[in-house]
């Protein structure tokens, strides 16, 4: 988050997936994040800690439980679309992306 001139695009969604952010949703979220050029971070709280949504190892390690509000922020050319897509993935209970 070094681009100080632009505020990051932000969004949030309630994590309703049965087991929380477990292995398969982690892979889906990371894969989706990787389709955007923006720097994208997620957190279980507004105050962070923010973790790189494109890092499968970090996303997998964070173990966010069910009924957590997942926060998303992004900076870059496609930041708005990236936040919308990730929030949409969480809201649709990770059904939005094949495999």
């Amino acid at each position: 988050m070094t681009t100080a001139s632009l505020p990051p695009a932000t969004g949030s969604a309630l994590l309703v997936h049965e087991a929380g952010l477990h292995a398969r949703p982690c892979v889906k979220l990371t894969k989706l994040a990787k389709t955007f050029s923006a720097r994208i971070e997620i957190a279980a709280s507004n105050e962070g800690p923010w973790i790189d949504a494109k890092s499968i190892v970090k996303v997998m390690a964070v173990k966010i439980p069910k009924d957590t509000i997942l926060h998303v922020r992004a900076i870059g050319a496609d930041a708005d679309a990236a936040v919308r897509a990730l929030v949409g993935l969480v809201e649709t209970d990770f059904e939005g992306l094949v495999a």
Binding site: A23, T30, K31, K54, I56, M60
Partner: peptide, 9 residues
Amino acid sequence: IMAATESWG
């Protein structure tokens, strides 16, 4: 799994 996810990207 991690390597394949990274490769996919």
